[in-house]
Simulated scan of single mutants.
Amino acid sequence: MTGRQKAKSEETQRRVLEAAISAIENGGMEAVQIRKIAAQAGYSVGSVYKHYEDQDALIAAVDTVTLGRIKTSMSEAVDGIEDPIEQLKALARTYLAFARNHRNLWKTLFTHQLPEGREAPESHIQGTVDLLAFIAGPLKQLDPGLDDAKLSVRTRTCFAALHGLVAISLEERFVGLPDDEMDREMMFLVERLAGKGAGQG
């Protein structure tokens, strides 16, 4: 493949991915249909399949982009903050804000599943690892005695608790909380999860 051909191929892949991102932002995961994405990107259906095996592969690529955007937001949120609990609070608020502002992308990230037997792209796996590292860093500062195995478990526990609170809030069901109470209770949760004695046991 010549340099020009490679550049053209990369441009096609980028435009198709952007079209899929736009489709999910506006209509949710169900809006990703290869024929419609091809038309929106300005390419043939065959051109889409040259870069993405199927609809699931295209959605997985969008999920990787979403993970990257969350990572960027979190990195900016903790920049200049030294206190580990304040870092965790900033991460929690940022995560909630991203979920609210990009609800369909966020929802797709956690609801889309690849067909049985197909592994997630390495970029997706690495993106998940990078996000959890934002939480693991402050937790390690708070409890230096945690070994890698316990730190991994504690990190996942903290993320699961926060994610659950955010998910319930966004569903706007009877257990959801108004904005001001949501922030207060989210900070309460962070303090309890990462506060004194969190590493014991």
Rank of each mutant, 00 (worst) to 15 (best):
T2W: 10
R4D: 11
E10F: 03
T12K: 11
T12H: 11
Q13H: 02
L17F: 08
A19Y: 06
A20G: 04
I21A: 05
S22D: 04
E25F: 04
E25Q: 05
G27L: 00
G28C: 07
G28E: 09
M29C: 03
I37H: 00
Q40N: 14
Q40G: 08
Y43D: 01
V45N: 10
V45I: 14
G46M: 09
S47P: 09
Y49R: 12
A57C: 04
I59Q: 02
I59W: 01
A60E: 04
A61L: 00
V62Q: 12
D63K: 14
D63W: 06
T66N: 05
T66A: 07
K71T: 15
K71F: 05
S75W: 10
V78S: 00
D79P: 10
D79H: 15
I81D: 11
E82F: 09
I85D: 04
L88D: 13
L88Q: 08
L88V: 09
A90G: 01
A92N: 09
Y95H: 12
L96E: 14
F98E: 03
N101T: 13
H102C: 01
N104S: 11
L109A: 10
T111R: 06
H112T: 12
H112C: 10
Q113C: 13
L114W: 03
P115H: 04
E116D: 15
E119C: 13
A120Y: 05
A120W: 12
Q126P: 13
G127H: 11
T128L: 08
V129Q: 00
V129F: 03
D130L: 04
D130T: 06
F134Q: 00
F134D: 10
I135D: 03
I135P: 01
A136R: 08
K140I: 11
Q141L: 07
L142A: 06
P144K: 07
L146Q: 12
L146E: 06
L146C: 02
D147P: 02
A149M: 12
L151K: 06
V153T: 12
T155D: 07
T157E: 04
T157G: 01
C158P: 04
A161M: 12
A161N: 03
L170W: 01
E171F: 06
E172D: 13
V175K: 14
V175I: 15
V175L: 13
G176H: 14
L177F: 05
P178I: 00
P178N: 03
D179C: 08
D180G: 10
D180C: 01
M182V: 07
E185L: 12
E185G: 02
M186C: 07
M186I: 03
F188L: 14
L189N: 08
R192C: 14
L193T: 14
L193F: 01
K196G: 13
G199D: 11
Q200E: 11
Q200Y: 07
